[in-house]
């Protein structure tokens, strides 16, 4: 089965080493996942802080390299691809980061983040075509071009800024979008619009999405599959409906039990913390392990 992007038994260890006094920290421990070419899905990578989800995202983006195992793009190891292939990889695998403000230069208008990738990757033949593409991308994420272009980043709301980032990713006609906590810095009422945009990119344009998040509720809403990470290990993975509705691993159960549901009649926290913690340590991982 051809996959666009595939992690094969990746492990990432920080610290340790020959002369280091620090202890080794295994941020990602032997995790495999693949993004299918033919049937692009939304895969959620969920976990709490320290679970290794962001490290896994960085490995998939080629920003960090694995200590062992490999990340393959179109079947080729990321560390071995040529310059031109890497350039193509940079276009086809687009990141969206947590803090939309951090991705902007505050002195440039938002036009800059939209037009410069178009120019860099020569996505448009002419200036008119570029403008047309940008407008289309903005509309796709629910923004009105006339109200967005020509403004400085601080003149947009957090939700708008993040949607511009989704539009930017979209402009490069990627095959994969890797979104690391794209909505955690955004107000709850605006989250829906951003996630809706991401979800539509998957459904309408066939872009595979990796959605890295700590929030199981939104993960459940938009993804097809989910991977639950705990302290660098993949503890449970599978179809999102099964994992959320019938969690098998004690950690997944604890996580779901701890989510405050917006329904006063469904009380949280039924599980006993200490007993569950004990079980988590010994339980084997559940679900696909390639």
């Amino acid at each position: 089965m051809p996959s666009v992007l595939e992690a094969k038994n990746v492990t990432k260890v920080f610290g340790g080493g020959f002369l280091s006094r620090e202890e080794e920290n295994v941020a990602v421990n032997d995790i495999s996942m693949s993004l299918d070419q033919k049937n692009p899905k939304i895969i959620a990578v969920a976990g709490e802080s320290g679970s290794g989800k962001t490290t896994l995202a960085r490995l998939l983006l080629g920003i960090a390299s694995p200590t062992s195992g490999s990340v393959e793009y179109d079947g080729k190891d990321l560390t071995e691809i040529s310059r031109s292939e890497r350039r193509e990889f940079r276009r086809e695998v687009q990141p969206i980061f947590q803090d939309p403000y951090g991705s902007y230069n505050p002195f440039y208008k938002v036009d800059h983040v939209l037009f410069s990738p178009v120019n860099n990757f020569k996505m448009a033949e002419s200036r008119d075509e570029a403008v047309h593409m940008v407008n289309q991308a903005l509309e796709m994420v629910g923004l009105v071009p006339a109200e967005t272009l020509g403004r400085l980043p601080h003149q947009l709301s957090g939700g708008q800024r993040q949607r511009v980032m989704v539009a930017r990713a979209l402009l490069l006609k990627p095959r994969v979008i890797l979104a690391d906590e794209p909505v955690s810095a955004v107000d709850a009422s605006l989250r829906a619009t951003i996630l809706d945009a991401v979800s539509r990119l998957n459904k309408e344009l066939g872009i595979a999405v990796v959605y890295v998040t700590h929030d199981l509720t939104t993960a459940y809403q938009i993804s097809d599959e989910i991977m639950i990470l705990y302290k660098g290990n993949l503890v449970e993975a599978g179809d999102v409906e099964t994992v959320i509705k019938k969690p098998k691993h004690p950690y997944t159960q604890l996580l779901i039990d701890s989510i405050p549901e917006a329904d006063p009649n469904k009380k949280w926290g039924k599980l006993d913390m200490n007993k569950t913690q004990e079980k988590i340590v010994t339980a084997p991982s559940v679900g696909w392990r390639k």
Binding site: A188, S189, L190, R191, A192, T193, L195, D196, S199, L216, T217, T218, Y220, Q221, I244, I256, I259, E261, A262, D263
Partner: peptide
């Protein structure tokens, strides 16, 4: 009403409605 409607839940998948 809209605030409550815009909340994602774990019980059922639904169309996202932002405010």
């Amino acid at each position: 009403r809209l605030l409550i409607k815009s909340l994602p839940t774990l019980s059922n998948k639904k169309e996202f409605v932002g405010i």
